[in-house]
Computed example of a mutant assay.
Amino acid sequence: MNKETIIITGATGQLGQFVVKYLQDNNIDINIVATLRHKSFDNQTYIFDSSRVTWELMDLSDPISIENLIVKYKPKYFLNTAANAFVGESWSVPVQHIEINTLGVLYQLEAIRKHSPLTRYLNLGTSEEFGADVNNGNLQNESTLIDPKSPYACSKAAARYLVNIYRNSYNLYAVQPWCFNFESELRGEKYVTRKITKGVARIFHAIQNKESYKPIELGNLNSYRSWQFAGDVADAIWRMFNQDVFNPNYTSPKSYVISADSCHTVRDFINKALDAAGINDSCMFDSAITINQKFVRPHDVTYLNGDASAIIKDLGWARQYSFYELVQRMVEYDIKNYKKELTF
């Protein structure tokens, strides 16, 4: 009997890598197919065994490449983590966000409907779809109103409605979790959390070497987020793919909120990062941080605080990392792997 297959878009990104690692570490007997927009001949380092992965070319803006891959593998699972996912840039390139994050999902769903209707499909959603602000202060769960505040959030919300329509119209196993911010040492360096931990590592080494340093430039320090470990999210995704296995009361596939159990401001994250580096004192914050208005969003979402009680109850999901343990992991990695920037 042929092995079942999972196709993963964005497998070289942060979450994609943790999903592949999760499958390999748990000895899940499955053929892992990872997609690339273009093949690189550079030696790249991953947190998983890349020799056990099949690499295929596919582009979310190219429906032919998507359809060909579905026809070739007829996968048991299709995980779409690839996206234009940097919120701040979405005001500058809004059409591209719709093309990749919304139309790309439509192309995938349509190919699955036509050629592989038994495929289980998961498109990664976002807490940004809720668009909540600090004035209401409520936890966000599966019943919270969708109210996007950015082109990125709009593209993901539109994709959610497509996922729902295809699930209800064609009886597909198609879900889109509301995934709150997930972080790790693999997080892209333009995202605020990694920008902070790399900046703290730079300042740590400058202090150790008795050198001057430039502060970290940030935007709104008072936005709240439910930051969680990307590896924990990988486990939640596998459970969502297999709800009939993990939920004894399963009737039909559901979309769930995946979130940490706490909520913190950017300011909190900075202080915990300075604590983790052992350089926090009464004056440190002001010398380490400066506000740059170019990093302030035109319409900021100020309060994303997730309630993941449903996935915990239904699918038995459990988090492995606390907020501080996550920050500490990232800071320690960046301190250990710090390389001084060369100036010419």
Rank of each mutant, 00 (worst) to 15 (best):
P215G: 08
K254L: 14
Y256S: 08
V200Q: 06
V200D: 10
N242K: 06
N220V: 03
I258P: 02
D235H: 11
N242P: 04
F229S: 01
D232A: 05
Y224L: 08
I196W: 07
A236G: 14
Q243Y: 12
M240S: 11
R202C: 09
R225D: 01
D261R: 10
A230Q: 05
N220Y: 06
Y250C: 09
N247H: 12
V257C: 10
F241W: 04
F241S: 08
Q228F: 03
A201M: 04
D244M: 06
N220W: 02
G219Q: 07
R202F: 08
S212C: 07
M240H: 01
M240V: 14
I237Q: 00
V233R: 00
A201I: 03
V233S: 00
G231Q: 02
E217P: 00
A201R: 06
G231T: 06
D235G: 01
A234C: 10
Q208M: 13
S252N: 12
D235A: 15
S259V: 06
S255Q: 09
N222H: 13
G219W: 04
F204D: 00
Y213P: 02
F246E: 07
P253F: 12
S223I: 15
S223L: 12
F246C: 07
Y256K: 04
V233P: 00
I237T: 02
Q243R: 08
L221Y: 09
D235C: 09
K198G: 01
K254D: 09
I216D: 01
Y213A: 07
A260W: 05
V192W: 13
